[in-house]
Design a protein around this nucleic acid. Structure first.
Length: 446
DNA sequence: TTTTGAGTTGTTCGA
DNA sequence: GTCGAACAACTCAAA
């Protein structure tokens, strides 16, 4: 039986891995990861560090068999096939705009088959359609169809006869960037499974309500594990079938959101960078300047916003409720186009995913999927007092507010000693900027 | 075929 | 303090 190549990308695990199962049908498997400058360069340090750690973990599970090479995948794959005499190259299909084109280019350059088995999603992009075959543009009908469609069972553990081919030249791991104090959680397949187990047994039953409270550990924090494919949503959905609770239902729908946004990107690749509703391009925006800088650095003077932006720089992760609030602040209060915020997020988020991140930003901007009532402008103070009533989250990330008790941390301007520790004054008047945002929308030709 | 109701995550105003 | 209406308008599916 001839050997095969398993070209790993966003599927850095051994369990529940259909492409690995397919590759193992041949002889020995050459597990390969290509450090592609076109993906490595634009990725921020948190994502690079996560990737390096995840590859190191995977290599250990493979007893050191993982082959790492840098360069253009077209050349690297052709070289590997030539060196090893492999009969096929196996991948998990990539749904992103760059990955799809890259895979077609690799396919054309190879004289052996490029075999795509499975996707990183429960239901592959392009699968769910309306009865007339057109794609859904609204989440809830997509969700119903997605649920009714169902998803495959987990593929199980790696096949018992699996043999890695050894001795293939490898450049070794790329250097891990210095994160300068930014803390990442444990990385890798075991860490992902453990995170899932811990979440399932503690926070899942109350996920429907607690997921909105950023001070609490109420969310799964699986996003980066899912992004790198250390765990597959199939695995999660199979386990969820044994949990009956409102929390389990809501968590399932969050996995459907991930599939939905991947589906939207697959059908409209330009939506990664451009407005899904093109008329929003003509809105009156402001060029990013000093106010944008203040937003990036978490010194807008709005505690909930600043806490979120500082959490981003401290952990490479932000609670989803707070992502919405900081995004709304940039787009609706500072009138900066969503692409600037999305790019900054992708630079610093450890889970930075093109589809989820950029469509989430478009949702906030009003230009994305969903009815998008343009008058939806988050009030950073209201959001703070509603979802962080004790001010615990704000004080955790903004030490200058540590002396303000309870919910008063959300309104330092109302406390006599609110600015005693150097917290900045508000950079804009929220009520005025809200009106300005609504006026800009009203002037938008339809 | 047309109509109708509902749609992840909101805020403000006035009764 | 609570509550409903208004903000204005697109997609989808059921009636």
């Amino acid at each position: 039986m001839p050997d095969t190549v398993l070209w790993l990308r966003r599927d850095l695990r051994l369990a529940d891995h259909p492409a690995l199962q397919a590759a193992a049908q041949g002889g020995r498997v050459v597990p390969l990861f290509v450090v592609d400058p076109r993906l490595w360069q634009p990725a921020g340090d948190p994502r690079r560090a996560w990737l390096v750690r995840s590859l190191r973990d995977l290599d250990e599970r493979m007893d050191g068999a993982l082959v790492i090479r840098s360069g253009d995948p077209v050349q690297v794959l052709a070289g590997i096939v030539r060196e090893t005499g492999a009969a096929s190259v196996h991948v998990t299909a990539d749904a992103g705009p760059y990955g799809r084109e890259r895979d077609v280019a690799v396919e054309h350059a190879l004289d052996v088959p490029l075999v795509r088995t499975g996707t990183p999603y429960a239901v592959g992009p392009g699968t769910i359609t309306k009865s007339d075959g057109a794609p859904y543009q609204v989440f809830t009908p997509f969700f119903r169809a997605w649920r009714d469609h169902g998803w495959p069972r987990p593929a199980g553990p790696p096949p018992s006869g699996l043999r890695w081919r050894r001795g293939v030249d490898s450049t070794g791991l790329p250097p891990e960037p210095d994160l300068a104090g930014l803390r990442l959680p444990d990385v890798g397949e075991d860490a992902a499974l453990e995170r899932w187990r811990a979440f399932r047994e503690t926070a899942l039953p109350t996920y429907d309500t607690d997921r909105n409270l950023p001070a609490r550990n109420g969310t799964s924090r699986l996003s980066a594990h899912l992004k790198y494919g250390e765990i597959h949503p199939r695995t999660l959905l199979a386990d969820l079938a044994r949990h009956r609770s409102k929390g389990a239902d809501v968590f399932r729908s969050e996995l459907a959101w991930r599939d939905f946004y991947a589906d939207v990107l697959w059908r409209e690749p330009r939506s990664a960078r451009e407005y899904l509703r093109p008329q929003y391009r003509r809105l009156a925006y402001e060029e990013p300047g000093p106010l944008f800088q203040a937003w990036c650095e978490g010194r807008t003077g709005f505690p909930f916003v600043d806490a979120g932006m500082r959490q981003l720089r401290a952990e490479g992760w932000v609670h989803n409720r707070v992502r919405m609030v900081v995004a709304s602040f940039l787009v609706k209060d500072l009138h900066v186009e969503w692409q600037h915020g999305a790019r900054y997020f992708l630079r610093w988020l450890r889970d930075g995913d093109l589809a989820s991140n950029n469509h989430g930003w478009q949702w906030v901007a009003g230009s994305g999927t969903d009815a998008a009532p343009f008058f939806r402008v988050f009030n950073p103070v209201t959001q703070g007092t509603k979802f962080d009533p004790d001010g615990e989250y704000v004080r955790r990330y903004v030490p200058e507010l540590g002396h303000l008790p309870g919910g008063s941390a959300h309104e330092p301007w109302a406390a006599p000693d609110g600015y005693a520790h150097g917290y900045p004054a508000r950079i804009v008047d929220h009520a005025a900027e809200r009106r300005s945002a609504l006026e800009r929308f009203a002037r938008l030709p339809s």
